[in-house]
Amino acid sequence: MKDMPQSKGLVIVGEAECERLVGRKDAFDAVQAVFAAMAKGDARNFPVVREALGHAEALYGFKSGFDKAGMVLGVKSGGYWPGNMAKGLTNHQSTVFLFDPDTGQLSALVGGNYLTAVRTAASSAVSIAHLARKDARVLGMVGAGHQSAFQLRAAAEQRAFDKVIAWNPHPDMLPKLGAVAEELGLPFEAVSQEDLGAQADVIITITSAFEPLLMKDWIKPGTHIACMGTDTKGKQEVDAALVASATVFTDEVAQSITIGEAQHAIADGSVTEDRITPIGAVINGDHPGRSSDDEITLFDGTGVGLQDLAVASVAARLAEADGSAQRISL
């Protein structure tokens, strides 16, 4: 009888280590690679489980998948607790479990809160890198919550922006985002939704809205929009007519049409599934991406489990390399 393979032990990487080790470039590279693998059929997300707990107004669920190209297998468990901010905690709480693809043994336990924010920002940054006009100069931000600062920092590295404009349902939250823009050396201005659409070359929406915050007629030709907040059935950040008028790209088509920003345009028949392109096809050179300076492009960033697994794998690798990872026997 052959000896059973021995476990190498469980690597544990906490939130502080993740934040210290995984930078924006690490996240960008990991997310871009996994989007490319998905488009080639080398990586697959499994069906998402997402349910209301019926307690603390929380949503809880699981996102999982397998990246054969990167040999990463795992699951992210967590959700959204809207009352956490009042307790000094972030509303999004999650943990990533990684498994050895060859044996199924648990190999790493990685904090997911910081990684969720940085991978979400990385996905919009990937869309800007591949779809926004090269001469984009004005960045528009819709939303000023916890993730908006991550979005702003990541976006600012993709184009030579000379101004940031922003709108938020609660204007008192905008100065905090303005401080991030100032730190980046970018002038910041709070504007109306209509003015934001009229001025911005790139727009990032990062809210928990259940109604459109931007309308088709407000958006100027050539704009790139990254819709990053819609990840649940019923949520909506932009007018369905705006989605229908744009060339639409996404992280995963199956999620885009069911829980993403495209769900409403799909429901009213103004967009069909075959009009939505995986961003990985652009990364791989199989789709040209933007076809003209006047084209409106829209990235439907629904958030897929493979993004979480990719950045968690990076965190585990870097933590082991510098000796900061905890390791326990199983």
Rank of each mutant, 00 (worst) to 15 (best):
V31P: 01
L139W: 10
K233L: 09
R50T: 00
I328S: 06
E261S: 09
V110P: 10
G112L: 09
V314Q: 00
K87W: 00
V253G: 15
A43Q: 09
A16D: 14
S127L: 01
V34F: 03
V31L: 01
G185M: 14
M4E: 12
G78F: 13
Y80A: 02
G185V: 15
L98P: 13
H55I: 15
A265Y: 01
F28A: 06
H146R: 08
G143C: 00
T232S: 12
F188E: 11
L330D: 00
I266F: 02
I12P: 01
S123I: 07
G260M: 07
N168M: 07
A125L: 05
L73N: 08
V311S: 00
V22C: 08
Q6G: 15
L131C: 02
G178H: 12
L10C: 04
D231G: 15
V72M: 09
A69F: 05
V34R: 08
P5R: 12
V118W: 03
R290V: 09
Q151H: 14
A190V: 14
W167Q: 11
A117G: 07
L109G: 01
S77P: 01
A155D: 11
Q193P: 06
L177T: 08
E273D: 04
I328A: 06
L59R: 12
R24P: 04
S64I: 04
Q199E: 06
E17W: 01
G280Y: 03
K63T: 02
G301A: 15
L298F: 05
V48K: 14
S208F: 02
L139F: 07
K40V: 02
D100W: 14
L98A: 13
G178W: 13
F210W: 14
P212G: 11
I276Q: 15
A86F: 03
L330G: 09
S148K: 07
E237G: 10
G78H: 05
G234F: 10
G289C: 05
L214A: 01
V110S: 07
A316M: 14
R327T: 10
S7F: 11
K40R: 13
P169E: 10
P187M: 09
D3I: 12
L53S: 07
S270K: 11
Q151F: 02
P82T: 08
K176V: 04
G143M: 06
S64D: 01
I257T: 14
E19H: 11
D294R: 15
F35K: 03
S107E: 14
